[in-house]
Amino acid sequence: MRYTAKKIGTLVLTMVLVSLFVFLAFSLLSGDAATRMLGTEATPERLEALRAELGLDKPMGVRYVKWLGALLRGDMGTSYQYRLPVAQLIGERLRPTLTLTLMAFALIVVVSIPLGVVTAKYAGGFLDRTSTVLGQFLMSVPPFFTGILFTYIFGLVLHTFVPGAFPQWEDGAGRYFGYLFFPALSIALPRIAMTVRMLHGCILDEAQKDYVRTSMSRGRSRGNILYVHVLKNTLVPLVTFLAMTMAELVAGSVIIEQVFSVPGVGRLLISGIANRDAPVVQAVVTLVSFWVVVCNLAGDLIGRRIDPRLRTGEGGRS
C-alpha cells in the first residue's frame, strides 16, 4: 500500500512539474499573444481589453491555479489560433494518434518477443549475429527518414497508399488501418530493435543463474527450462520496458504524423508551438504527461501482479 502511494506521489509530481514547466515557459511569451492576434497596429486599449479577456493581465501564480482548476473540470481553454475550445480540437484528433500508437505497440510486441527469445535460445548462432547487426543498423535510422522511404517506395512507386491523403474512419477500417500501418511501422522499427536487444540480454543474464544449472543437472531440457523458468523471470523487466516504450511512442507519433500528414494530436502540438498557441500546447503536453504517468503506473502494477516477490518489499507489507 505504502509503495503504491509513494509511486502515485511521484507520478502526480511528474504531471505537476511538467504542466508547471510548460505553463512558465509560455507565460514568458504570452504577453505578446494579444499583439499577435490583433496585429501590431492595434490600439493599446484594444490590446489591454484582449489581455483581460484572455486573463493575461493577472499574475502568473493566479493564472496557473485558475488554469489547473479549469483543467480538472475538463475545461482546457480556448485556442488562440483556431478560436475554438482546446478540448474539442484535441478530441477531433485523438483517434488517429491513439490508433497509430497502439498499432506501433502491437507491432513491437508481436515481432520483438519471439525474436528476442529465439535469438537468445540460439545465442552466438547465425540468426543471433544477423539480428545484432541488423538491430544496430535499425536503431540508427531516424523514424522520419524511414517514413520518407516508405512514402517513396510504397506510396509513389508501388501505390500501396496515397501519401498525404489520410482516409477518414468512415471510409472503411481497411483503408484507415492500411494508411496508418506505415507510420506505425516507421516508429516501431527502432523500438523493435531495442526491445529485442533488451529481452535477449535479460534472458542470457537469467540463464547464468544457479537454478538453471540445477535444473539442467536434474535432466530437464534446455527448451523446457527456458520456457518454464527463465522466461517467467524476464517478464517483469520486459513489462517495465514495454510500458516505457508505450509512453515514448507518443513522442515518436508527434514526428511521424508530420511525415505522413496524419491529422492527429502531434500535428496540433506542432502547429501550436509554431504559432505560440499557449492553451493548445499546455493542454497537449499535460495530456501527454498524463499518458506517460498512466503507462508507467500500469507497467508497475502489472509487474507486481506477475512477480509476488516485488509485493513483499518495504517492510513485508503491501
Binding site: L17, V254, L269, I273, V288
Partner: peptide, 22 residues
C-alpha cells in the same frame, strides 16, 4: 533526484520542443 525522476518519465524530445519555442 526526485525532480529528475519525475521529469525523466516525460519524453525529453517534447520538453526540448517547448523550450525551443520559448
Amino acid at each position: 533526484m526526485r525532480i529528475g525522476d519525475a521529469l525523466s518519465a516525460f519524453p525529453s524530445f517534447l520538453m526540448a520542443l517547448v523550450l525551443v519555442s520559448v
